[in-house]
């Protein structure tokens, strides 16, 4: 058996969309002679994900991330290409496959809005045909890990967004899926709630070895949870470890000088373009191949140096630059 749980080969999705014209005459034209155009949401992408891997799936808005997740979930049909998840072709929509994965969309709610949370959990037990004993054990474990005991009997509409997302995750995990597709699970949450969700996902993945494909616009989610990332913009732009991404795309490093006396900005500027300035701390962004040279220059300068630090540029900044380039 292949160790890959997810295999995607030349997967393509095209949509036919009507180009909407504005104004009254435009609307009439839309009605009687619509201008159709084909949009390629996903262009011949390839990737494989092994069992237990947690992979960040990144890309700017409209890059095809959610479309890919929906194809892998069997919601929409691919235009061409092949995909296998847990040995199944998702588009065959087999119930045996549906029992083994979960899709959580941060912007969509699957819990019953006006009912206590526990009712939605109980409904999922019936739908997924989970034996009572296994359901009770799984629920107890999830309730403890997510700390949601006190909200189980609250109406969903009365929960905070953070509590609701925790309950959404619990609902999606009650049938113990082997694969999880997470589409922006922390969207709109405050920093503490985001951290809680991240910690839970990390712990759950370590414990259950569940395979996760995660999209998020919050780089903290990706940095904390994933070692590997796939960057997509209709086509795959990058697929590899985060460390490879830094090596490949971080063409600059950051030098931070800590001084023991106050320094004037004009003096700091003599060494180059200042990235960040504080009278006791100055930061420069230097091309990788110029680091040695710049260090010599700093050491021989008149600045009252107390310490010098050399850091990589953050992943978030690298990815932001890539997204800007992709646009």
């Amino acid at each position: 058996m292949s160790k890959n749980v997810i295999e995607v080969k030349n997967l393509t999705k095209k949509y036919v969309s009507v180009k909407k014209k504005t104004g009254f005459s435009g609307q009439l034209k839309n009605l009687f002679s619509p201008e159709k155009k084909t949009i390629e949401a996903v262009k011949s992408i390839n990737f494989e994900i092994a069992r237990g891997e947690m992979v960040g799936f990144l890309g700017p808005n409209g890059a095809g991330k959610t479309t890919t997740l929906k194809m892998l979930s069997g919601i929409i049909a691919p235009t061409s290409g092949k995909m296998r998840v847990l040995g199944f072709d998702p588009w065959e929509k087999k119930n045996a496959y549906k029992k083994r994965f979960s899709l959580v969309m941060g912007q969509k709610n699957q819990l019953w809005w006006d009912l206590p949370v526990i009712e939605s959990f109980s409904l999922n037990r019936s739908i997924y045909d989970v034996p009572r004993k296994i359901f009770d054990e799984t629920l107890e474990e999830l309730v403890e890990m997510l700390d949601i005991k006190k909200v189980l009997n609250f109406q969903v509409r009365n929960l905070s967004l953070g509590e609701r997302m925790k309950c959404e995750l619990a609902a999606a995990l009650l049938h113990q899926p082997e694969v999880m597709f997470l589409d922006e699970p922390t969207i709109g949450l405050d920093i503490v709630a985001q951290k809680n969700i991240r910690e839970f996902l990390k712990e759950y993945n370590a414990k259950k070895k569940v395979t996760v494909l995660l999209t998020s616009h919050y780089m903290k989610d990706i940095e904390n949870l994933c070692e590997r990332i796939i960057i997509i913009n209709q086509k795959i732009f990058f697929d590899g470890q985060i460390s490879e991404l830094i090596e490949k795309y971080a063409d600059r490093k950051i030098i931070t000088i800590v001084t023991d006396k106050k320094v004037a900005l004009e003096d700091a500027k003599e060494l180059g373009v200042v990235r960040k300035f504080d009278p006791y701390e100055i930061q420069y962004e230097i091309p990788r191949d110029k680091i040695r040279e710049k260090m010599k220059e700093i050491v021989s300068s008149n600045l009252p140096i107390d310490d010098i630090l050399v850091d990589e540029i953050g992943v978030e900044k690298i990815i932001r630059r890539i997204f800007e380039k992709l646009k």
Binding site: K70, S73, G74, I75, K93, N95, A96, K98, K99, S102, L103, M105, K108, Q110, I127, Y128, D129
Partner: peptide, 14 residues
Amino acid sequence: KGSLDSLLLKPVDS
């Protein structure tokens, strides 16, 4: 609105 998604994911006849 694409709300049919959550129903199509369930392991029961759609």
